[in-house]
Simulated scan of single mutants.
Amino acid sequence: MNIPSSAKSKRMYSLTIIVLALASAAVMISGCISNSSESTIWKDAPDVDINTDGTVTYVDLEGGFYGIISNDGTKYYPLNLGEDIKKDGLKVRFLADTKDDIMTVQQWGIPVEIISIKEI
């Protein structure tokens, strides 16, 4: 079967347009998926008291413990810091709620409950 060249060109053009449209859609969808989870967790977290970056710090008081000093110098005493994050000098981004009704033996920093934390 011999198809005239103009019909071949039209089919090739149509196929190229379809492939480009599908590829563009796939790229846009993958970008939306990865960005939406990041923004939900870190940027648009209205229900948390603290959404900041800081450095995990070992404090050698009262037997020793780990705290977080934010980039603006605020000291936080996390009540539920995971063992994998307890590394002196580790840079982190975290979401936390303050616990105003708690007093600690350490008397260092603002007591907080970590909602989410990740190394940066």
Rank of each mutant, 00 (worst) to 15 (best):
G31N: 01
V59N: 13
V92T: 00
V92H: 05
M28T: 00
A7C: 03
E38L: 11
S70M: 11
I33V: 08
R93L: 05
T55H: 04
S116C: 09
M103H: 05
L90Q: 10
K86H: 11
C32P: 03
A25P: 10
W42S: 04
F94V: 01
T55L: 01
D100R: 02
D84W: 13
S30F: 10
L15F: 12
F94I: 04
T57W: 03
D100P: 03
A7S: 13
E38N: 04
D88R: 03
T40S: 08
D72W: 01
M12Q: 13
I115N: 02
I69G: 09
D97C: 07
S36Y: 07
A96Y: 07
A21I: 03
F65Y: 10
L79F: 00
P111R: 03
A23D: 09
E83C: 10
K8I: 06
Y13W: 01
V27I: 12
D88I: 08
S9I: 04
P4D: 15
G82I: 14
I50W: 06
A96I: 06
S6R: 06
I29Y: 08
P4S: 15
D72C: 00
V19R: 02
F94R: 05
M103V: 14
T57L: 13
N51W: 14
K87Q: 15
A45D: 09
C32H: 07
S34G: 06
T40Y: 04
T74A: 13
S37P: 08
V92W: 06
P111W: 12
E38Y: 04
K118S: 07
I115V: 15
P78H: 05
G109L: 08
N2A: 15
I102K: 05
T57Q: 09
S14T: 08
I17R: 06
D44H: 07
D101F: 00
K86P: 10
G64N: 07
D60F: 05
I29F: 13
L95Y: 07
G31R: 00
V92C: 06
G63P: 08
S39G: 14
I17T: 05
W108V: 13
L20T: 04
Y58W: 05
M1V: 00
E62P: 01
V48M: 08
P46W: 14
V27N: 02
I114Q: 03
E83H: 10
N71W: 02
A25R: 00
F94D: 04
G89K: 05
K43S: 15
I50G: 09
I41N: 02
V59E: 12
F94S: 12
S14L: 07
A21N: 01
Y76H: 10
V48S: 06
T104M: 03
T16G: 01
S6C: 05
A7H: 10
A25V: 07
L95R: 02
K75Q: 14
A25K: 02
W108E: 12
V19L: 10
S37V: 11
P111F: 03
I69P: 04
N51T: 10
L15Y: 13
M1C: 13
S39E: 13
T98M: 15
I114V: 05
N80G: 03
M12W: 00
A45N: 12
T104E: 03
